[in-house]
Amino acid sequence: MAEERKIRVLMSKPGVDGHWRGIVTVSRGLRDAGMEVIFGGFQSIEQIVETAIEEDVDVIGLSIHSQAHIPWTKRIVSLMEEKGIKDSVLLIIGGVIPTLDHERLKELGAAEVFGPGTPIKKIADFIRENVKRKQKVSAS
C-alpha cells in the first residue's frame, strides 16, 4: 500500500497586522495533528496564491485580526479563481471575526471560519473531512 500523502496546509497572514499568536498556535497544532504545514507568515495575496500553487497545498489558512476580513477574502478568492485553484484548494479563515460575518465569508468562498476559543482538533477534523470531499469533487 502506498504511503498516504500528508495533507499540506499553507498558513499565511495577508496585510500587515502583526497579531501572531493565532497563526503560530494553529500551525503547530495542525503539524502536531500530522499535517504538513508551510508557514507563509506575512504574504501578499499574490504571494499566497503563488506559494499555494508551487507547494501544491490542499489548504490555505488565512489568519486575519485586522477586521479587514471581507476585502482580503474577496481578493484571494478572485485570484484563486483566476489561477484555477478555487475548486481544488480549501480556503479556511481564522481570527477575531464577528460571528455575523462568518456566513458572509462563506458566501464569498471560504470553506469555514474559526473564531477565538476554537479547539485545534475541530480545525484539524474539518480539514480532514473536507479536503477529501474537495478532492473527490475535483477528480470527478
Binding site: G15, V16, D17, S44, S66, Q67, A68, P71, W72
Partner: peptide, 9 residues
C-alpha cells in the same frame, strides 16, 4: 499590501 487595513484596528 495594506490599503484595506486603514483605520480598521
Amino acid at each position: 499590501r495594506a490599503d484595506v487595513e486603514v483605520g480598521t484596528e
